[in-house]
Amino acid sequence: MTSQGQALLRPEAVLEEFKKNGVTHVVWLPDSETNWMYLLMKAEPSLTLIPVSREGMAFSTAAGLSVGGKKPVVMIQNTGMLESGDSIRGWGLGMSTPLVLMVGVRGWTRHGGNRPTDVANFTEPFLNALGIHYYLIEHGGDAPRISLAFEEAERTKRPVAVLVGDEYHGFNR
């Protein structure tokens, strides 16, 4: 959740990070945190969108793109990330795929207070269990962390997550 007075995380800033890092393909499944990106990405000639119907497919698709020399990013919700566990393990970690996954964090509040079963409670433990490093972005000033994630993914040949924690401001406009 964005703190008062901080600049909202604008979709244009996220797109700029993608372009700066040479992203060629966005493999994605819409979610409530990333829906704002769709029209912007669709209009961007340097990006090809690949829609999947189940998040696990995003990781094998991205692995194929990466082996073929392209630079994909995966854009999904934390709910689908949990569903994708074995695909992340096998097609991401097992194939040494340098990959950034942008994960909309449904239920993010920063200060807790969720119901015990909210998916937000399981998001970071899930990434920790797989040994996947992550960066949190909540407002405009955090956008450069996306570049840090790309640099780390390339350097380590591993998936790196960017948790998009701004569920309520700026995205659903």
Partner: peptide, 21 residues
């Protein structure tokens, strides 16, 4: 020959590779 990275992903992998090349 990938072995079995994770069941269910070969078709998507092939799609990604075909689009990349």
């Amino acid at each position: 020959p990938l072995g079995d990275p994770a069941m269910g992903g070969h078709a998507s992998f092939a799609l990604g590779l075909a689009m990349a090349q």
